[in-house]
């Protein structure tokens, strides 16, 4: 089907997120306003105004009532999804890179960048039922060995017992949320060779997919951190997503934004590439963006996906029926 082009952002997209029911799509961009769309027809519902910098990441609670966003303005904010009202602001001394609600939505993990003398860190915050009771204290703060490297993504593991983090230092780490101890990390042999840009969990928290500038994406067991699959593509990977319905993974990326203007637009390979999750073979690609893909998200029903690019567009693709019968 023809993709729906959603033009609402003025700057490159950074993150996309569906709510659990799959009817709402949240998009973050380097302009300062996260935007809410109808996931079906791409109609814009509203924006969340209040940030004063690029918004890097967001997450929505299971009941679609709360939204948390992390921004380069050194804050993470809680929002009321329905009214767009700002509920609370967590202030950090450095830009926040990623946010993720825990199972049950009582906790959130927030990563902050290295900034002046502050080292990159992973913060765990308690999220109060009633925004009136919200406090900004961290329950737990974790730090990677090299505090100057960004932590691009941190998500909750099964049963909130672990936190999985990945970033510029190419290492994926699993932390114990009770003790704050490092439980496991990838070694040089199987790990990524360059900065990890993105991380995406399976719906049942059993495995996750990471994308890296080393032009590969890797699938890992979330409990043991064993490498299950590697998907090799020709371009740096900026965004990854997994189909909840079929055994497909989608990789998005493209050459660096700085090199784009000097070459043919096809040279960038700004495609969302589909791979068979099990056979690791390329199935096909979806073209369209006029710039690298920075964000990818699958609708929880697996029947549509959206991509956000450096070009400032969100493209919403509903799959044709042929897609569900692909044989390779």
């Amino acid at each position: 089907m023809r993709p729906i082009l959603m033009k609402g952002h003025e700057r490159p997209l950074t993150f996309l997120r569906y709510n659990k029911d799959g009817d709402l799509l949240f998009s973050c961009a380097k302009d300062h306003t996260p935007t809410l769309w109808f996931a079906d027809n791409g109609e814009r519902l509203g924006t969340y105004r209040g940030h004063n910098g690029a918004v890097w990441c967001c997450d929505v609670s299971r009941d679609s009532s709360r939204l948390i966003t992390g921004s380069a303005d050194q804050t993470a904010k809680l929002w009321d999804v329905k009214s767009g009202k700002e509920l609370f602001t967590f202030k950090f001394g450095s830009p926040t890179r990623s946010v993720d609600f825990a199972l049950g939505d009582h906790l959130a993990v927030i990563t902050t960048d290295h900034f002046v003398d502050r080292m990159a860190a992973i913060h765990v915050k308690r999220i109060a039922e009633d925004p009136e009771d919200q406090v900004s204290d961290s329950v737990l703060v974790l730090q990677c060995p090299d505090g100057k490297k960004r932590i691009n993504r941190a998500v909750w593991g099964p049963l909130n017992q672990t936190i999985v983090s990945a970033g510029e230092d190419t290492v994926i780490r699993i932390w114990d949320t009770e003790t704050g101890k490092l439980l496991n990390e990838t070694n040089e042999e199987v790990g990524h060779k360059k900065a990890i840009t993105s991380l995406c969990k399976a719906a049942d928290d059993s495995h996750f997919l990471t994308g890296s500038h080393d032009k590969t994406a890797k699938l890992w067991d979330m409990r043991t951190l064993t490498l299950i699959k590697t998907y090799t593509t020709g371009v740096p990977v900026n965004a990854v997503a997994m189909s909840p319905l079929l055994n497909h993974v989608v990789l998005g990326g493209g050459q660096d934004a700085s090199a784009v203007t000097t070459t043919d637009h096809r040279a960038g390979k700004f495609e969302a590439k589909f791979y068979d999750k099990i056979l690791q073979e390329e199935i096909g690609g979806v073209k369209g963006h006029f710039g690298p893909i920075n964000a990818l998200a699958f609708n929880p029903d697996g029947k549509s996906f959206s991509s956000g690019g450096e070009d400032g567009y969100v493209r919403l693709h509903h799959f044709d029926s042929d897609y569900f019968n692909i044989k390779i």
Partner: peptide, 26 residues
């Protein structure tokens, strides 16, 4: 495919075991 199925079965089993824990968390 077989290998994958095996993995998935393991995951499923664990997932099932933890069902109650998840409920409590929610």
């Amino acid at each position: 495919k077989d290998e994958w199925e095996k993995w998935v079965m393991q995951w499923k089993a664990l997932h099932e075991e933890e069902k109650l824990a998840r409920q409590n968390l929610r």
